[in-house]
């Protein structure tokens, strides 16, 4: 224990205009939030709708501006960084992966192209003229790794590689998004509701995909409303309410607490 990968302290966030309803006051979403995420573990965040879970992820990813607080990220074998000082794309390159709520694949790209987007970006005009050998080898490696991953979760890569991602079923899209995170170099993955829009029968496949991410030594921070799913993948659990992490503990305990607070 005591090998954190992420250390959030004193994080506060408010929106200038509350977009819900017509009242125009300041809406405090996070207030002095503290959270420590241990390396290589699964950390689940529970909280009611509108508690600010997605907002927390957006601040970690750099999609939402935040000037108050500190988010220290400790990448393995590299210097720690305060994420708030970096822009979104630099944070991703530093090792923060993200599964967006809803669609998290490029719908107009085919499956193979989507997987290649998980590759570390090559700058300048890419390999426009010169198909550099090591990049080509790297691509092959990534694709075969992703194909293995998809096969393990019950999806045939060879059959779907040329299909547009938008034409896949919701579950296949989700698995593809997992595959992209699996082959990426990201160390800390932020998964925002991976089970939304997924049929109940397919939850074991998503759970298997999640376990495979963990087996790659990746740290996972998970937001999920589906308590059946959360019980399938035990780990550390946090309860977010009133802008703070109110309680941390085992999945079982926090689910119990969450259920009693929600009154069901």
């Amino acid at each position: 224990m005591n090998n954190p990968v992420l250390h959030i302290s004193n994080l506060s966030k408010h929106f200038a205009i509350s977009r819900k309803g017509m009242n125009m006051q300041r809406a405090e979403v996070l207030s002095s939030l503290h959270l420590i995420v241990e390396r290589g573990q699964l950390n689940t965040i529970l909280g009611s709708n509108g508690a600010g879970k997605t907002t927390l992820f957006n601040i970690i990813s750099g999609f939402e501006e935040c000037r108050r607080g500190e988010i220290m990220f400790y990448p393995a074998g590299r210097k720690p960084v305060n994420l708030l000082r970096l822009d979104a794309s630099r944070r991703a390159r530093a090792g923060i992966g993200r599964l967006l709520q809803g669609t998290s694949v490029f719908g107009n790209l085919n499956v193979e192209e989507n997987i290649l987007m998980a590759q570390k970006p090559v700058y300048a005009f890419g390999n426009l003229f010169d198909k550099t050998k090591h990049i080509a080898i790297e691509k092959k490696k990534i694709i075969s790794k992703a194909a293995d991953f998809l096969a393990n979760t019950g999806m045939d890569y060879a059959q779907s590689r040329n299909r547009k991602a938008a034409s896949l079923s919701a579950a296949s899209q989700r698995l593809l998004a997992f595959a992209m995170l699996y082959v990426s170099e990201a160390e800390l993955l932020l998964l925002d509701e991976p089970c939304s829009g997924i049929h109940h029968d397919q939850l074991p496949e998503i759970a298997e995909a999640l376990r495979m991410l963990l087996s790659e030594q990746k740290t996972v921070l998970l937001i999920e409303h589906n308590l059946d799913f959360v019980s399938m993948v035990p780990g550390t659990c946090h309860y977010l309410s009133e802008g703070k992490i109110r309680e941390s503990g085992t999945t079982e305990d926090i689910i119990f607490m969450y259920k009693s607070e929600q009154g069901c």
Partner: peptide, 18 residues
């Protein structure tokens, strides 16, 4: 491919480190 990906989903494009 990057151009098509970016115009498809800017947020995800950033999340992929670009």
């Amino acid at each position: 491919r990057n151009i098509r990906a970016m115009s498809d989903n800017e947020l995800l494009y950033k999340a992929s480190g670009r």
